[in-house]
Design a protein around this nucleic acid. Structure first.
Lengths: 240, 240
DNA sequence: TCTCATTGGTATTTTTTCATACCGTAGAAG
DNA sequence: CTTCTACGGTATGAAAAAATACCAATGAGA
């Protein structure tokens, strides 16, 4: 087997130290709106267990996010770490900056990865027979993003996309899609949310859901590809 | 955003301790044939850097693999850790054992994940315009697996599948496919390599390559899906 | 035959991370 | 107003992991 494949398998087992990884994870959860503004993170004890780290390390991460202004930590019963984060008003300057912050290669990598896993997830979901609860969930998420206020749009869009992966029932696939989304969050947040774009996206979202519910794997995959290609092309434009 | 999505994002940042993760990674690299029997692993210093761990921790992992009989470690210049592993002759008993060793849920998860990322990778590769070197690489890997001796079959099959992901140029996607393959390695190794199966697989491999070279994303994805569905169905049969 | 670069082997110290126990606070419930 | 308790805050010792420096062996090549 060639040299190149060594890199895929003997890649780092540890992305960094536990503290830094935890800060990054929590920050992305905040920026993604998984825990919206004003909401509370799970308690330190629960969160430490979920993240597989000690409470001490988690506290260090929370403290740095508190000092950075992302969290408001309150003591006592019914206290906790409350998210303080409102999505910024985006502009082109921010986008160029965000694009330049990550390497051109990293951006292409992230976009390709996202395309692959989201297409794969939609394709698989379309092959499954969904029960009524699952269909309702999918339609609910679609309705949510269609009826979203501008401030909530990104969050609900994320929720919609992640729902597709989660409905496949594969935690690995859901994690991969979440990871893919994380890698382009800052970029997406820098894209202005405009009326025509939203209408366009809404039609594409509808096409994705329709293909999934119709049991059309190729159609679902193609619909996702078209949907993602839009933003991908926009972002790639900033590389030249 | 719902409860369920918290799980995807606030999932463990650390799968286990560095030692155990390293042992697992190296062992899978060996079982997958990334470093074939008789070949040498990179030097401890290099490997430690690639894996993102200290040399001390790496050495502990290497030592346990040495004691388990997977490595022959020799000192001095031109020394190193040499792989001592010949793929076992598989049988049904081994398969049932391997399937039972991982949970039913984990198996379904791994199979779904693999299906998604490999279909996605093939689909994306089919949309790209390959240069002559890339086409040659793909055809070379196809020829390799078609002309493989039984002892080398799994290794070259793995190399073929991973090549598709690597040719997309996305390290993230390549890593995801490698990871997906790792999760079913033990199971695949327990499946007997029979003549009819090989012929069948060869035809499917050919179909995959043809679709990719023809620039047919849907066809490539479908060909991969059909190919993987065969083994997936076989493995799922052992769950009942 | 000797050199010497490259490799594994060892020892030591520091940093990070974890496990555990306990303290202080706040706010709803009675 | 008191109590109860789920939360964050603190302290301490152990364990894991890393960083660093140095020792020892081997075998190709001068």
């Amino acid at each position: 087997m060639k040299e190149t494949q060594l890199g895929s398998l003997l890649r780092p087992v540890r992305a960094g130290n536990a503290f830094e990884e935890t800060v990054e994870r929590l920050l992305q959860a905040i920026k993604l709106g998984v825990v919206p503004h004003g909401e509370r993170l799970p308690s330190e004890r629960d969160l430490a267990v979920h993240l597989g780290i000690s409470r001490v390390t988690l506290r260090e991460a929370i403290r740095s996010l508190q000092e950075a202004g992302y969290l408001d930590v309150r003591r006592g019963r019914y206290g906790g770490a409350f998210v303080v984060y409102l999505p910024p008003e985006p502009g082109h300057a921010d986008l160029a900056e965000a694009v330049n912050q990550m390497g051109a290669g990293d951006l292409a990598d992230a976009l390709t990865f996202r395309m692959a896993v989201e297409c794969g997830a939609a394709q698989i979901l379309a092959t499954l027979t969904l029960d009524s609860a699952q269909r309702a969930m999918l339609l609910r998420r679609l309705a949510d993003v269609n009826g979203a206020a501008p401030a909530d749009y990104r969050r609900l869009d994320t929720a919609f996309h992640l729902s597709i992966a989660e409905l496949t029932g594969s935690p690995l696939l859901a994690a991969a899609c979440a990871d893919a989304r994380l890698r382009v969050t800052d970029l997406l947040n820098a894209i202005p949310v405009l009326g025509p774009n939203i209408a366009h996206a809404a039609a594409q979202h509808q096409a994705i859901v329709s293909a999934i519910l119709a049991g059309d794997p190729d159609g679902a995959s193609r619909a996702v590809a078209e949907h993602l290609e839009g933003t991908a092309a926009l972002l790639r434009g900033f590389l030249a």
